[in-house]
Design a protein around this nucleic acid. Structure first.
Length: 416
DNA sequence: TCTGGGGTCCTAGGACCC
DNA sequence: TCTGGGGTCCTAGGACCC
């Protein structure tokens, strides 16, 4: 059996490219990609970090993840645009649609990354390099943004290849190219080597991917457990994972927010929890799932974070049930310190049609009917069409988080 | 440095049972 | 009950990714 051919397609500065393409489509004359610009949160609130940056912004040494405050210090004329998650979803799915024309073996890896199994496509689209250039150029022409494509025989190497020179490039990283193309790179550029691991590796004089590749795997395994073995395999280009096609199993749904102000009282906290639960539960129902575990996470004004989770007696997709449990969890852990961040996370999901509702839970049936009715109205008339009355004069948002609200946006196909 | 929000997976420790 | 070892479940926290 011969080697596979795997492509990794990565949108260059995705959020920023998509914003730029969208603005040009709508008649703007300025291309954000040509000036120092970033996509980021609200400078005046506390959501302020850089989510994506233009290449000119990069020249000012602005980094993804840094605060908008410090980004602005580096470049006073920096343009900051707020994120538009609905736009990103539409761009992502337009890309998905196009890529599916080339191979049915496709794995969405994140909103702006796809793996494609292109084994045996030579008859249709030419050599892997030719095919990748065709795909890349077509995306640019028809969708209005650029991508990098990495080509190799497994996902890890394809992904590493797509990280090479950007933007708008195709790179290969086959096995025999590893010593020249990958081993000289700093070890922190290896997939799965993050901040915590890199400082440990440096302490043992491991500075490049090559250094890691040539370290004794037994030693790494004893020292860093399974993660040690994993990064050694990656450093040597070893990855046997499959392309996970179709609807891969969702493991959990979370919804969290940094509040614009410190939360000091239980009443406000409960309303925020309700808002978070509404969105999370709606997404759960949309996925036709129920959850067995509810988790509440908190971060106080000193940035200490802590969480508390509990199993439910029965799986549920009901907003009120989830909210009740979230309040209970909150009461059990909140120490009264002012809070700056709150989150709700639902896990241990199961199929909702699998799960039989106990016929004795009359109250639950009522809630389910209510959830169904509310979901339908929000789908039809937009998410703000129906709002719990307690939010009316609260100054708080009744639905926290990014939920898609198709009513207020035109379809992708009409824009791009 | 004034520090988001969505995920996944792993590990360690305690409870509980045999 | 001056008391071992192993399995499983549960929870909290931390690592990583984008």
């Amino acid at each position: 059996m011969g080697d596979k051919i795997i492509f990794h397609i990565d949108v260059n500065s995705a959020f920023l490219s998509w914003e730029a393409a969208d603005r040009l489509q709508h008649g703007d004359t300025l291309d954000l990609r040509d000036v120092p610009s970033v996509v980021g949160g609200d400078e005046s609130k506390r959501h302020g970090i850089v989510l994506a940056k233009s290449i000119p912004a990069k020249k000012f040494n602005i980094k993804t993840g840094e605060s908008l405050f410090s980004a602005r210090m580096k470049c006073s004329e920096l343009i900051i645009v707020p994120p538009n998650y609905n736009l990103y979803m539409r761009c992502s799915s337009a890309l998905h649609q196009m890529l599916m024309e080339y191979s049915p073996y496709i794995q969405p890896f994140s909103v702006d990354e796809y793996f494609l199994d292109c084994t045996g496509m030579e008859n249709h689209f030419g050599s892997p390099l030719e095919a990748a250039h065709k795909i890349k150029n077509r995306i640019k022409k028809e969708l209005g943004f650029t991508v990098n494509i990495g080509i190799s025989t497994n996902k890890l190497l394809a992904k590493m290849a797509s990280e090479f020179e950007k933007p708008d490039k195709v790179h290969t990283l086959f096995k025999h190219e590893i010593p020249q193309k990958m081993w000289p790179l700093p070890v922190e550029e290896l997939f799965m080597v993050g901040r915590a691991t890199v400082s440990k590796l440096h302490a043992k004089n491991i500075f490049t991917i090559g250094d890691l590749a040539n370290t004794d795997p037994e030693f790494l395994k004893c020292w860093l457990k399974s993660h040690g073995l994993l990064i050694w395999q990656y450093a040597n280009g070893i990855d046997n994972s499959d392309i996970k096609t179709s609807a891969y199993g969702l493991k959990g749904i979370g919804n969290s927010t940094t509040t614009a102000f410190d939360v000091q009282d239980k009443k406000t906290a409960n309303m925020l929890l309700l808002s978070l639960c509404e969105t999370a539960a709606m997404r759960l129902r949309n996925a036709n799932k129920c959850c067995r575990v509810v988790c509440v996470s908190l971060k106080d004004f000193k940035f200490n974070s802590y969480s508390h989770q509990k199993k439910l007696d029965l799986p549920t997709d009901c907003t009120n049930k989830i909210y009740q449990k979230a309040c209970e969890l909150f009461d059990e852990i909140w120490d009264g310190e002012p809070l700056r961040h709150m989150g709700v996370h639902l896990s241990e999901l199961c199929e909702s049609d699998f799960y039989q509702v106990s016929m004795f839970e009359h109250e639950l049936q009522k809630y389910k009917a209510l959830d169904r009715a509310i979901d339908e109205i929000r789908l039809k008339y937009g998410s703000s069409a129906i709002v719990r009355s307690c939010f009316l004069h609260s100054g708080l948002r009744p639905l926290m988080g990014c939920i898609s609200d198709n009513a207020s946006y035109p379809l992708m196909s009409s824009i791009l």
